[in-house]
C-alpha cells in the first residue's frame, strides 16, 4: 500500500527497505512529520531507508536533524539510511556537515536499491 502524507511518499521496496520521496523541502516546517512517518515504518519492520532527494530544493538543519534521528534509530538494528539523486542544495548541506561519511550516496533510487537486494 502506498502511504501518502502531505509531503512524503513512502514506497516499500522489499520486506525491510523503503523509499521515501522527500518533496521540495525538508525543513523546520515538516521535519516532525518526516520523523513520525519514518517511525511508523520502523515499527512495521523497515530497516533500510532510501531517501530520494531529486526534487529537493531546501534541506535545513532541522530537516537534517530529523534524518539523523532516523539514522540513530536504525543503525542499532543494522539498518542503513542512504541518499539518492542528491540535488545541489542538499549536496551543500551534506558537504558542510561532513555527513557523506555516514550516508552513502547513489546517483539514482534504483542504484541505491541494488545494495539492499
Amino acid at each position: 500500500m502506498q502511504v501518502t502524507t502531505t509531503s512524503f511518499k513512502v514506497e516499500p521496496s522489499n520486506q525491510d527497505t523503503v523509499i521515501v520521496r522527500i518533496g521540495k523541502a525538508l525543513d523546520f516546517r515538516n521535519a516532525a512529520e518526516f520523523k513520525s512517518t519514518c517511525q511508523t515504518q520502523v515499527r512495521s519492520g523497515a530497516r533500510n531507508f532510501v531517501l530520494d532527494f531529486s526534487e529537493t530544493g531546501i534541506l535545513d538543519s532541522t530537516g537534517l536533524g530529523s534524518i539523523f534521528s532516523l539514522y540513530r534509530q536504525v543503525s542499532p538494528l543494522e539498518g542503513q539510511v542512504v541518499f539518492a539523486s542528491v540535488s545541489r542544495p542538499v549536496q551543500v548541506v551534506v558537504q558542510l556537515t561532513r555527513t557523506y561519511k555516514v550516508f552513502r550516496q547513489f546517483p539514482s533510487v534504483d542504484s541505491a536499491l541494488e545494495t539492499f537486494e
Binding site: 539523523f68 539514522y71 540513530r72 561532513r98 555527513t99 561519511k101 555516514v102
Partner: peptide
C-alpha cells in the same frame, strides 16, 4: 573538518 556531533 570532521563529522558533526551526535551521529557516530
Amino acid at each position: 573538518s570532521d563529522l558533526i556531533l551526535g551521529l557516530d
